[in-house]
Simulated scan of single mutants.
Amino acid sequence: MLHKLNLEHILFLDIETVPEYKDFDSLSDELKYLWADKTKYQRKEDFTPEEFYERAGIWAEFGKIVCISVGFFSFKGEERSFRTKSFFGEEKEVLIEFKNLIESHFNTPYHLLCAHNGKEFDFPYIARRMIIHGISLPQKLNLFGKKPWEIPHLDTLDLWKFGDYKHFTSLKLLTHILGIPSPKDDIDGSQVREVYYEEQDIDRIIIYCEKDTVAVAQILLRLRQEELLSDDEVISV
């Protein structure tokens, strides 16, 4: 089935998230209580709610998206390219720009969204943040009432599981074992909060996010047993 997919019909993506507020003290008293309640099972006795807050970016209710990077294949005769683009800035504008891209260029029934662990993280996170900001969901993210085979999402983690639902493989591990250049050569997800709030270096986050997007495309190529992208085939626009 993977070989039957038209690569030009797939929008690859990755998101980077951080806590919505810089630190725990910036939360209202009600949000502090709700955060403590939400994370009590994850924290157990090991962390206080304040100490655990640096991880808030992984929950859509307490985090926000600071970058969405997308990529898509383009073929002209025998020439292949993979074009990447990033949306960053105020979260609501990021989400609106991403929605506009989907609705204008990837809105037909045969178009697909693809991410690593996208079904568990990227896709629902984007949808939840859109709802929080009062943005209507594009059809590619509106899953209400759809049967599993009608959902227009590809997940490279899901593909790698081969039906083993208890198995998790990180993007870093999967790229390594498949012989794909690692996208984690500068920072990793645990450092994005610090780079965003302390270093205020959004450019570094964008580069990291785009590398992850390229890595997702490379994984799909390997699963299709096709030649990996070379550096000169990847174009940032």
Rank of each mutant, 00 (worst) to 15 (best):
196 Y>F: 13
161 K>S: 09
133 H>S: 06
160 W>K: 14
183 P>A: 08
134 G>P: 00
134 G>A: 01
136 S>K: 10
176 H>E: 13
168 F>H: 15
142 N>E: 08
131 I>Y: 06
165 Y>K: 14
166 K>G: 15
140 K>Y: 04
194 E>S: 06
133 H>C: 00
179 G>F: 04
160 W>R: 14
172 K>W: 06
149 W>S: 13
145 G>D: 07
162 F>S: 13
147 K>P: 01
175 T>W: 06
130 M>S: 01
162 F>E: 13
133 H>D: 02
138 P>I: 10
172 K>A: 13
136 S>N: 10
155 D>E: 11
180 I>F: 04
142 N>D: 13
126 I>P: 01
149 W>N: 11
178 L>D: 05
162 F>V: 14
132 I>G: 03
146 K>F: 09
180 I>N: 00
179 G>R: 06
149 W>H: 13
162 F>D: 12
160 W>T: 13
126 I>C: 06
132 I>R: 14
153 H>Q: 12
191 Q>W: 03
184 K>M: 06
188 D>C: 05
127 A>K: 11
148 P>A: 11
127 A>L: 06
167 H>K: 15
133 H>E: 05
191 Q>A: 08
141 L>I: 08
145 G>I: 06
174 L>W: 07
147 K>A: 12
130 M>A: 02
174 L>K: 08
182 S>I: 04
153 H>F: 14
137 L>R: 02
163 G>K: 09
160 W>M: 15
186 D>A: 05
194 E>G: 00
145 G>W: 11
188 D>F: 00
152 P>Q: 14
129 R>N: 06
196 Y>V: 02
173 L>H: 14
129 R>F: 05
147 K>F: 09
175 T>K: 04
136 S>G: 09
188 D>L: 02
181 P>F: 02
181 P>I: 05
126 I>E: 01
166 K>N: 15
128 R>H: 10
177 I>N: 07
159 L>E: 02
186 D>H: 05
164 D>H: 14
182 S>H: 03
186 D>G: 03
158 D>C: 09
153 H>G: 06
168 F>I: 11
173 L>A: 15
136 S>D: 11
155 D>P: 11
196 Y>M: 05
187 I>F: 01
150 E>H: 10
164 D>R: 15
161 K>Y: 07
160 W>L: 15
150 E>F: 10
188 D>H: 07
155 D>S: 12
141 L>N: 00
189 G>D: 03
128 R>S: 07
159 L>C: 11
157 L>W: 11
173 L>G: 12
195 V>W: 01
150 E>M: 12
